[in-house]
Design a protein around this nucleic acid. Structure first.
Lengths: 339, 339
DNA sequence: TTGTAAGCGTTATCAA
DNA sequence: TTGATAACGCTTACAA
């Protein structure tokens, strides 16, 4: 019933090693036997047993993906599925398989990683997010296990990572706004303890500097989180001191909060820009101008980096920078029709 | 460096088979040796090599998930990531691993399935969608390979599947609308070639019947697809003949199209209900009343059904029905504030 | 260019 | 209750 390499060998009148070689396209095999074996493989409908092959060759060609412990909310964000898709596309091209697991807490994440590593199922791990003081990164690093993370980790040396250029992304956004005639531009970001926030804040400051606009501290605010509520609170407070011409934020949800205040106060002609191109940004009224971080690209490049590393290709980089894309919508045109 | 079962055996002064038994909690092992071995395992920090174990036991405890070839669009729908999450949660409890792959076309899907099956990596396959005349189902069936599908397949006999009760879901929606004083209720569905559509149409008809309301053929329409555009087209045509008091649809996007027409024509007091609780339904104005199909539940039960089957538990069912949940929002209250 | 045979790290069968 | 030992199906020195 079950056809093994042995059967093929017998059918083709060669040894099992020869069959193995033909299957792996070993160059030192004659065209003659190659044909003979290939024919037998076909005739018997033989397919190598991946598990056996993995055991013998000590290589599973499998990567593991850890999905973060997250509130339902997080999965409303297409980021994850898109990143997983990007990873899958690249992994396929390189002949790698993918395993995944959702966790319920950060500790559980580490447990999964341990189980992946110890059981020797996966040869490398892909982390889809970086946390402050990330336990997973700490563990993987301590084990010297190959892994890549999406997002720039705190200590990026000797670690594989993929991220957007958050400085440049925000730098470009601010320039875009200045080009459109805005000078008083506010910045509302998440906690500055995140690299992302810091990078974007720096991009904001540098862009103003480059256009010879002074940074007004009153127009720069750090949020406690990335929520709509927080965006609302911050902007409400801000306008009691000064009403800017435009606001850049580090997250669509912060921007939604800002838009709410604008609607409530019936402020006019104020531009707002978000980050992440969330689904909602396109259905919000007005639709929100936002920065797409290209999650599928992030995923695909992460897979590439990790596989290159596993296969010890001449890896020049330990990271990739993925281009972002500004998506212009109504929140920066002031031509939004009022429903 | 690498510690194997052999090392543990030597350290504990027993045979490898004894170690293996202890690890698998074989009942016929004395407490004494059990302790001895456990100690050695701990001391040496031994972890079984999953690949070797799989080969010997002929069981990988791994399931494969095929993600459909889909337009970007589809992944805006949280269904997939939620279903994958549900699958993961259950699989973890049962000690199963998961592999996944995105495909670019239906043929490629079949190729993935073949590769999963032939390589013997996975013991069963989970399909997240059913197509009309589904090639994947046809192939898996022809190979007699264990699989489960989310959605009711065309020939549901001898197949494992998980689905909502689409008849009942729509039946309840219509009753809800009747309870709220509506009598002229229209139905706008996708192609009737889909079981889903048919089931929901039947639920609609039966509910009207039960409330002694005649079905008006003018108020029943079949769409060519599930798009916003199609919903718009159909409803526009429908109101040229007759304006209903309420509309039920088989998909949020169809409902969005209907809402558009309502806004354009400034019709008032018309209720609209969608299906799937898409992200957008909650940000649309008015927010859309819709039926949540509980994707995580669908996933989790799919995993359960498949694993039960693989482990040959006394499986009474070849399917599970997942409850739906009606989410009431502004589109059925007529109290929506107009932005 | 091909074959022989020793692993790869477990589990399972059989015997004790 | 435990131990030998032969699988599991393939890869890979090493030999020829």
């Amino acid at each position: 019933m079950k056809v093994t390499i042995r059967n093929v060998a017998e059918a083709a009148q060669v040894s099992t090693s020869t069959v193995s070689r033909v299957i792996h396209d070993d160059p030192r095999i004659s065209g003659e036997t190659k044909r003979k074996v290939a024919a037998a493989v076909k005739r018997l409908n033989y397919h190598p047993h991946a598990v056996a092959s993995s055991l013998a060759s000590r290589s599973t060609k499998t990567l593991g993906i850890i999905l973060p412990n997250a509130k339902e909310e997080l999965f409303m964000n297409p980021f994850f599925i898109q990143a997983m898709r990007g990873i899958s596309i690249h992994a396929q091209d390189r002949g790698y398989h993918l395993m995944y697991a959702f966790s319920k807490s950060e500790e559980e994440e580490v447990e999964f990683i341990k189980s992946y590593i110890h059981s020797k199922w996966v040869e490398g791990v892909i982390l889809l997010t970086v946390r402050h003081n990330d336990q997973c990164i700490a563990y993987l690093r301590s084990q010297q296990y190959p892994f890549v993370v999406i997002g720039r980790p705190e200590d990026a040396n000797d670690i594989l990572w993929v991220d957007n250029d958050n400085f440049k992304a925000m730098y470009d956004v601010v320039n875009f706004l200045v080009d459109h005639g805005n000078r008083e531009i506010a910045f509302i970001g998440g906690p500055l303890s995140f690299n992302v926030t810091l990078d974007r804040l720096n991009g904001y400051k540098q862009a103003l500097l480059s256009r010879a606009i002074a940074v007004n501290p009153v127009l720069v605010a750090e949020g406690k989180d990335f929520t709509e509520k927080e965006g609302h609170r911050i902007f409400q407070k801000m306008i009691s001191e000064r009403i800017p011409e435009a606001i850049v934020t580090t997250d669509d949800y912060l921007a939604f909060g800002v838009l709410e205040v604008i609607a409530e106060r019936q402020l006019e002609g104020i531009s707002v820009v978000g980050f992440n191109n969330t689904l909602r940004s396109n259905y919000q009224r007005p639709t929100l101008t936002t920065v797409d971080i290209q999650p599928a690209d992030l995923g695909s490049k992460a897979a590439r980096l990790l596989i290159d590393h596993l296969e010890k290709r001449a890896v020049v980089f330990n990271h990739y920078i993925i281009e972002t894309r500004l998506i212009e919508r109504d929140s920066t045109t002031h031509s939004a029709k009022k429903d």
